[in-house]
């Protein structure tokens, strides 16, 4: 197990930083590693280093929690699988004009993950080969998780949209769309 820790530490050192990795072991002995990079752009060399360890990109979580917002930042957590050990590498981005490099050249499956985070949050993924909407209709305003949107619009559901219009008309607060 220490072997994985040493290899990850050595790999991430290639980014030019010496990241502090917190390792946790659960009751079954399954390891998870947690680290933060000093600069968002370092995610690219970090990903390159992890692919050298036969790492797999499990998923990417973008988020904007209240505590991060109070610090004036937003965060993205990249979750990598290393043969059963999960390493989460977190970066911070500014609230305005957030940009992050695409990992699609390194991990093909970053494609959908990055398309999805671009439609949910106000984050630009630079160098993405196909930055179209993934799930949300293009008529919906961008950064859906950062603004108030009627649920029926968000899900683009015809039945629930009809219900929403009926409720709004009855309440008299808004004209039916």
């Amino acid at each position: 197990m220490n072997d994985v820790k040493d290899r990850v530490q050595a790999a991430l050192s290639q980014t030019g930083e010496e990241p502090l990795i917190e390792w946790r072991s659960d009751r079954k002995g399954v390891l998870t590693g947690w680290c933060r990079l000093g600069e968002a752009a370092l995610i690219l060399p970090a990903a390159e280093a992890l692919v050298g360890l036969e790492g797999r990109l499990s998923t990417i979580t973008a988020y904007l929690t209240d505590s991060a917002r109070q610090r004036g930042v937003r965060e993205i957590a990249y979750h990598f699988d290393l043969d059963g050990t999960t390493l989460t590498v977190t970066i911070e981005l500014p609230l305005e004009d957030a940009r992050v490099p695409s990992l699609t050249m390194i991990f093909r499956n970053a494609d959908w993950n990055e398309r999805e985070l671009m439609e949910l949050y106000d984050i630009q993924v630079t160098g993405h080969p196909d930055p179209r909407r993934l799930f949300l209709d293009k008529s919906i305003e961008p950064a859906a998780f950062e603004r108030l949107i009627p649920f029926s619009t968000f899900t683009n559901g015809a039945a629930s949209k009809a219900l929403w219009n009926k409720v709004m008309t009855m309440s008299g607060t808004e004209k039916a769309a």
């Binding site: 499990s58 998923t59 979580t61 988020y63 929690t65 209240d66 505590s67 957590a77 979750h79 989460t88 093909r108 499956n109 494609d111 959908w112 993950n113």
Partner: peptide, 24 residues
């Protein structure tokens, strides 16, 4: 992935299902 802030509401809850990559 679950992030909590001490309240009983998740600060962020994200999941990635197996089909997600299999489509591509």
């Amino acid at each position: 992935y679950l992030s909590t802030d001490g309240s009983d509401m998740p600060a962020r809850l994200k999941w990635r299902v197996p089909s997600y990559m299999n489509w591509d």
